[in-house]
């Protein structure tokens, strides 16, 4: 099966074309092996997008939303940074097939 179309930063053009295989493939490019902890965040992001049609706009708000949803243990930047290196919101949204977070903060 052909992979969904992506933009020059590696984000999916259409979030609805995403499948779990897409996630594994994008994660491989970042040398990330997806484990349960990753999938928990990915499924949170997918659900968030279904409901609100937006990515968490910034890294701080990504952390805030995870905290709200999964509690303090997971809603902190160190935890998320370990799972999704770089800028966690960007890395996680890319893997979860969401648009690029819009806000630089």
């Amino acid at each position: 099966m052909s992979q969904p179309k992506r933009n020059n930063e590696g984000f999916l053009e259409n979030a609805w074309e995403w499948t779990p295989e897409t996630a594994s493939e994008i994660a491989r490019e970042d040398d990330i092996d997806l484990e349960n902890n990753h999938w928990e965040i990915i499924s949170f992001l997918r659900g968030f997008y279904r409901e609100h049609e937006m990515s968490p706009p910034s890294n701080r708000l990504f952390v805030k939303a995870v905290k709200e949803h999964l509690g303090e243990d997971k809603g902190n930047s160190i935890y998320l940074m370990r799972l999704f290196p770089g800028t966690p919101a960007k890395t996680a949204c890319r893997i979860a097939g969401l648009p690029r977070p819009t806000n630089c903060l």
């Binding site: 968030f48 409901e51 609100h52 049609e53 937006m54 968490p56 706009p57 708000l61 805030k64 939303a65 709200e68």
Partner: peptide
């Protein structure tokens, strides 16, 4: 376009 109503409902999650 994306639904602004849905975006707004998300906004309250962010504080």
């Amino acid at each position: 376009q994306k639904g602004v109503n849905r975006n707004l409902a998300g906004a309250t999650v962010f504080g």
